[in-house]
């Protein structure tokens, strides 16, 4: 932990031989980088807010769009993304434990916690890949433009003339003869999502665009973080930091890793919850 730095007298500081902030060069500039990166993410989320406030059709509801689990199918609102969030929080915890071990010059503990952090990061990136795969491929039957508006076809059997539509936003699904009539008279069909159209919000293509942009940009940060963590882990194993006499590098990459977690906290709130 920093902040234990000793006081300086003004003469010494003015001589240019110390940081006015009592912090090392590398850490200070990591913070500056993170602040500029935070502005980028802040701007992306504000752009999301702009589109959300400018659209007149209702924005898709998080728990209605993201309700699937791998291997289990639908019906689990927000459970998967909650799991992803938890994985990222835990890998943040293992990171801060690695930093703490570094402050005690405990190389073995640093290696242990850094390894767990890398594993957590890999799991998160993998989860995001699944989330994207599922988002791009969409629901089983896709969405149809019916006389009642856009609805997702949740059950379908042509032989039995069965078609059940989910119109979302807390509306009751429509099935039976009414559902089949809606299906017979459908005017358009969208399955999955791309940058031009998406079945979750057929009237708001920006919904998928922002999803790809923001979670993609964040996922790329996580991937970068995993690579950087791996490099630092290898350096630790090789004994680079023993030679240097301090483990501040762990603290610097830790800052980046926590930042990635911090961004996810906001993405999670604005994309999935609000």
């Amino acid at each position: 932990m920093a902040g234990h730095a000793n006081e300086v007298n003004a003469e010494e500081a003015w001589g240019g031989n110390g940081s006015p902030f009592r912090i090392s060069y590398g850490k200070q500039y990591m913070w500056f980088f993170l602040m500029s990166d935070a502005l980028t993410f802040g701007a992306l989320l504000c752009a999301y807010g702009f589109f959300r406030h400018s659209t007149q059709s209702p924005w898709p509801v998080g728990e209605e769009v993201f309700n699937a689990m791998p291997f289990l199918g639908g019906g689990f609102p927000l459970l998967y993304v909650a799991l992803m969030t938890f994985i990222l929080i835990i890998s943040s915890v293992t990171m801060v434990l690695a930093v703490e071990a570094g402050h005690r010059l405990d190389k073995k503990a640093v290696i242990k916690w850094m390894t767990l952090t890398v594993i957590g990061g890999v799991f998160f990136v993998g989860s995001q890949a699944w989330e994207w795969y599922h988002f791009i491929h969409g629901s089983h039957f896709g969405a149809y433009l019916t006389a009642e508006g856009w609805g997702t076809l949740v059950e379908f059997d042509a032989a039995k003339e069965l078609a059940v539509f989910d119109f979302h936003h807390g509306q009751a699904p429509k099935g039976g003869a009414e559902g089949w009539a809606l299906f017979e008279g459908n005017m358009a069909h969208i399955q999955g999502a791309n940058l031009i159209q998406n079945e979750y919000a057929p009237l708001i293509p920006q919904f998928a665009n922002l999803f790809f942009f923001i979670t993609g940009f964040h996922g790329f940060h996580v991937l970068t973080g995993v690579v950087i963590n791996l490099i630092i882990l290898i350096n630790t194993k090789k004994g680079v930091y023993d030679e240097r006499g301090h483990f501040e590098m762990i603290e610097k990459v830790g800052l980046y890793w926590h930042f990635v977690d911090l961004v996810w906290v906001f993405v999670f709130t604005f994309f999935y919850l609000v």
Binding site: A2, G26, E100, H103, L105
Partner: peptide
């Protein structure tokens, strides 16, 4: 950047007792 800043990096050292509080 390595030798000039060593003092700041080393100021962050702590012992096992302090480590327990941090954990």
């Amino acid at each position: 950047d390595l030798y000039k800043d060593e003092a700041y990096a080393k100021a962050a050292y702590h012992d096992e007792e302090h480590g327990q509080a941090v954990r």
